Computed example of a mutant assay.
Amino acid sequence: MFTGIIEEVGKVSKIETYGGNIDYTIQAEIARELKVDQSVAHNGVCLTVVDIEDKSYKVTAIDETLNKTNLKHLKEGDLINLERGMKMNAHLDGHIVQGHVDQVATCERAETKDGSWEFTFSYDPKLMNVTIEKGSITINGVSLTVVNSKLNEFSVAIIPYTYEHTTFRTLKKGDVVNLEFDVIGKYVKRLMEMQSL
């Protein structure tokens, strides 16, 4: 489980493909505190640490993960949002995040406001995921509040701290991001679907 509060922005230093899998080597200060078999969220995708070396560690993404997330678009040198699993005795500063991406979205607009930024995203409505005004959404692992919720589009407002300490500072129109919708909303949606059977 995660909170959507990014600990560090890491750097993809090496990408190795074998079969349907991709190994990503990530340079990050938190590497020294990790251990093999630990879960870390990468742009909101929960991956297992398989190797550690000094200030770098390695994770593997399998075909299933690559097909449902934006990880397949990563290139060596790209920045990536990182968060370790939450501690049960700590504050839940963001919201409950599982690290399971529901679908991807495309950045439609990135607008500078007076002291903040507003990003608008569109996503495929066929998967029946929904946002609600002032509800929670996770974008590339970052816990955010929805504004301007529509059928297949929504916006988020970004404060300077979040902009400077996540990959939002590099995000532009046309970029593909990972979305994890609010888990409580997903359960409510599923219960409503079951009642209509």
Rank of each mutant, 00 (worst) to 15 (best):
L82I: 06
T162V: 04
T166R: 10
Q103L: 13
K189H: 12
M194E: 13
M194H: 08
D93Y: 07
Q103Y: 02
E164I: 06
L179K: 05
V183H: 09
V156A: 02
T138D: 00
L179V: 10
E164K: 15
G185Y: 03
V188S: 05
E83T: 06
H165Y: 13
I80N: 01
I159V: 11
F168W: 13
K189C: 06
D182Q: 08
C107H: 05
E111P: 03
G115Q: 08
V176M: 12
M194I: 14
D93M: 13
S143A: 11
V176S: 07
V104M: 14
K134I: 10
P160R: 03
T166W: 06
R169Y: 07
K113Y: 06
V147R: 09
V156L: 02
E111R: 14
V142N: 02
R169M: 13
C107Y: 04
G85Y: 09
V130S: 14
A110E: 06
G135R: 05
R190H: 12
G185S: 14
Y123F: 15
G77L: 03
R84E: 06
I137C: 07
T170K: 13
L79K: 12
S143R: 01
R109I: 04
G115C: 08
E83Q: 07
V177M: 05
Q195F: 11
R109D: 14
S149A: 15
E180V: 12
D114C: 01
G135D: 03
V176I: 15
K172F: 06
L82R: 03
L191G: 01
E111G: 01
R84V: 05
D124R: 11
T112W: 00
V97A: 12
F181H: 08
D182R: 09
I158H: 02
G185P: 05
F121P: 00
T106V: 15
V104N: 14
G185L: 15
R84A: 03
H91I: 11
N129E: 10
V104W: 06
T106H: 10
N81W: 00
D114R: 13
H91C: 09
T166D: 11
F168S: 10
E76Q: 11
G94Y: 08
H95L: 11
H91E: 15
I96S: 04
I159D: 02
N140H: 01
E111Y: 00
M194Y: 14
G99H: 09
E118L: 08
V147E: 11
A105R: 05
G77K: 03
T131G: 06
E133F: 10
F181Q: 07
Y161G: 00
M128D: 15
T131R: 09
V177R: 00
D114K: 15
E83W: 04
T106P: 00
N81Q: 04
L179Y: 03
S155A: 13
I96D: 04
T167K: 08
G115A: 06
V97C: 08
F168I: 09
L127Y: 14
W117T: 00
V130K: 15
H100K: 10
N89W: 03
A157M: 13
Y123E: 10
K75D: 08
T145N: 12
V183W: 06
I96K: 09
D175E: 06
I139T: 05
G174T: 04
R84S: 09
V176P: 01
V130N: 12
N148E: 14
I137F: 10
